[in-house]
Amino acid sequence: MNELNIKYHNNFLKEVEENIEEGEWIKMCMQCGVCSGSCPLGPYWAHPPQELFMMIRAGKREQVLRSDSMWMCTSCYNCVVRCPRKLPITQIMHGIAAYANNLGMAPKIQPTRDFSILFWKNCTRTGRVNELRLTLGLYFNDGLVAGIKKGWAMRNIGLGLMRAGRLNLFELFKGHECKDQKGIHAMLKKAAEIEQRHKHLTA
């Protein structure tokens, strides 16, 4: 089938339903626009939730998955509270983002995505978040010079935290760790397997 033939047909919607958590809700949207109007970041999205749902129903696979819109969601849950059709919009936003990411279709430079990856790696390595490394990782994300500049700008806060015993420079070398790191890794692996089984990833 050519592109024209599948427009507004259920193909992409079905794919989304099969692969995205809570994706089966998308067909229930009644296009009232309350979510888009409620979202504090709505005006900055290229496609606010209502529109994303319509795009999915219109079969715009590429445009949806390559969009950076769903990455804009801050999980404030305003939309979920207000949606007259009770759609779990926040979850769906993250679901679409994760799916796009798994398919390698997510935008390459996207601050939310960058931070998410950094955070995930940071906390899954030892089972605990290493705040100093997370912060520095974020600072140096844009290169060495930018990192030094940001660090310098924040030095007083850093010193203050240190004096208050809230920041330990040795964390840089060996921070808090979970006792059973192997167990944690095994758990995460199992979770990934279950997810795979649940949603048959189509690349």
Binding site: M30, Q31, R57, A58
Partner: peptide, 10 residues
């Protein structure tokens, strides 16, 4: 109708 997968388009 939506539940059955009927697409509604404004």
């Amino acid at each position: 109708g939506q539940n059955r997968g009927v697409t509604f388009t404004k």
